[in-house]
Design a protein around this nucleic acid. Structure first.
Length: 502
RNA sequence: GUCCCCAUCGUUCAAUGGUUAGGACACCGCCCUUUCACGGCGGUAAUACGGGUUCGAAUCCCGUUGGGGACACCA
């Protein structure tokens, strides 16, 4: 059985986002849960940045994560920017620690070095899949002799370090919401712990840090259940206590699959820039998975809301009443419809001044208007035309008519497919004029679309019109998150229409 | 394919062996109203299926089906 942390130990929880792009709504969800858990128990809420994947690293991402979490009201007690007794809180600054711990595992025989190349491993996986076998490391280098190791080394082969999972037996761990979960060891792979670039994988870094940072409760998404036995094995290999695990249900798309940017806006920046109030988002997230009892009319009215019944509560309410043992395990669909209703309720609850301030601090802030103004100054003859020219910046959505978006030389289906290409490209592009222009033009050449048709399509999708302020500059001011959403929605809408026709 | 998790209205949560299976969102109708909203009132709508256990099952057990997740030198 697993050892639970000393019950007298002060509660410490953490979230551990990776700076690989825009802050994710799932991070806010898990962050909220961790935050509530800590606050309810007088514990500490730690923010750790898991930046061990240098190939997916995005330098602007960390600051966006900080901003987004603060916008949500989820302030951490310890973290990279605020410090704390168990730092550093950025994994890239802890590589020595991981190397030391890997050395310990190597010395105790709980890990071994493995010299296969990526290509060899891919090959192995492919043939296993082809043979309808579960893809798993075959353990070829588990018991290399020192002579073999020396041979690989002189060959200059890069090595990884793998966890030596026992061949027999099973690992049982307790999930606080589900009870005991058992994995037979022959279903647990020899996980890579240290990559050939010297950086640890999530599994190693996570376990080492959680222990060193005295984390008592690991509250994370359900997708981690199947790797938890590896983590438990690691704790045991080090001789450490295992924390409590709480695996939270995964947020879902409408089709029940794991929430994804292809099917939902997942960037917190999108919600902020589209005029959602953080209290509405937090309330909505608190609804996902249960945990909160239905508020009474009294409680709702106390928030100034003009409804008698409804799933309305604040962060403070959650701190007071959220019950982790009530959480239901079905994956909740992240349905924007109800979030919009909630947002409306919070908007209506604002005082006149408060509402005005909300407008002035977001969509109609000096900063935003100051960036939009130069885009239209030469294009209008009366100030009122500013509205005609820039309406798309202030709309929730825009639906271009076929006459507007369809280029003469292309068919609808083909155009939608091209828009999908644009979407993929925009996701991967930094929003600067140079990068956008280069990327878009390159795509146009590759797909045999003229620059004019190419840009005009994107213009139609984002602005709903054939005439607009300069496209690229407009996109930059409008923002990546909202731009991606418009393109995605355009594609969805057109696909739906196509299906209806058939 | 293998392993793991899950299963109440379209969606999200209630009902923790005994209720006409409840609320919210959405939808529909009526009222309010110069319009549109807001608000008020009402309505449609669910225990996936099959076996047990029990006086009694949405609730406990088994199976089936369905959904999801994981199976990377990503997290």
């Amino acid at each position: 059985m697993t050892t639970l942390p000393d019950s007298s130990a002060p509660i410490r929880v953490r979230i551990a986002p990776s700076p690989t792009g825009d802050p994710h709504v799932g991070t806010a969800y898990i962050g909220l849960l961790n935050f509530i858990y800590a606050k309810q128990r007088g514990g500490k809420f730690v923010l750790r940045i898991e930046d061990t994947d240098r190939t997916r690293f995005v330098s602007s991402s960390e600051q966006m994560i900080f901003d987004a979490l603060r916008w949500c009201g989820l302030q951490w007690d310890e973290g990279p920017d605020v410090g704390g007794p168990y730092g550093p809180y950025r994994q890239s600054e802890r590589t020595d620690i991981y190397r030391e711990h890997v050395a310990m595992l190597l010395a105790s025989g709980h890990a071994y070095r493995s010299f296969e190349t990526t290509e060899e491993l891919d090959e192995m996986r492919k043939s296993q899949l082809a043979a309808k076998l579960p893809p798993r490391y075959n353990g070829a280098h588990r018991e290399l002799t020192s002579a073999q190791i020396a041979a690989f080394e002189t060959e200059g082969r890069p090595a990884v370090v793998r966890l030596k999972v026992p061949v027999d037996g099973e690992t049982v761990f307790r999930d606080e919401l589900r009870g005991d979960v058992t994995f037979s060891h022959n279903n647990v792979d020899d996980q890579v712990l240290l990559k050939s670039d010297g950086f640890p994988t999530y599994h190693l870094a996570n376990v080492v840090d959680d222990h060193l940072m005295r984390i008592t409760d690991v509250i994370r998404a359900e997708e981690w259940i199947s790797s938890t036995p590896k983590h438990v094995l690691l704790y045991k290999a080090f001789g450490w206590d295992v924390p409590r695990f709480w695996h939270m249900p995964l947020l879902r798309n409408l089709d029940k699959s794991k929430i994804s940017k292809r099917k939902n806006p997942v960037s917190l920046v999108y919600y902020r820039d589209s005029g959602y109030l953080p209290q509405a988002l937090i309330n909505f997230l608190g609804l996902m998975g249960g945990g909160m009892a239905q508020p009474t009319e009294q409680e709702i009215v106390s928030h100034g809301l003009n409804v008698k019944q409804g799933d309305v509560f604040s962060l403070a309410d959650m701190q007071a009443k959220f019950d982790f043992k009530r959480i239901s395990l079905g994956g909740p669909v992240f349905d924007l419809t109800k979030l919009k209703w909630l947002n409306g309720e919070y908007l209506r609850a604002l005082s006149g001044d408060g509402f005005f301030d909300a407008l002035r601090s977001t969509l109609f802030s000096d900063d935003y208007l100051r960036r939009i103004a130069p885009l239209v100054q030469t294009r209008i003859n009366t100030l009122a035309e500013f509205g005609d020219m820039t309406d798309f910046f202030f709309k929730d959505d825009v639906v271009p008519a076929v006459e507007v978006f369809l280029p003469k030389k292309h068919m609808v289906e083909e155009t939608v497919a091209f828009a999908a290409e644009q979407l993929t490209l925009l996701e991967a592009t930094n929003f600067t004029v140079e990068e956008l222009e280069a990327a878009l033009k390159q795509l146009g050449v590759a797909k045999d679309w003229t620059v004019k048709d190419n840009f005009m399509l994107l213009r139609a999708i984002v602005t709903g019109k054939t005439a607009s302020p300069p496209l690229l500059e407009s996109l930059i001011v409008f923002g990546k998150a909202r731009t991606l959403d418009r393109v995605r929605r355009f594609i969805d809408t057109q696909k739906r229409l196509a299906v209806q026709k058939k």
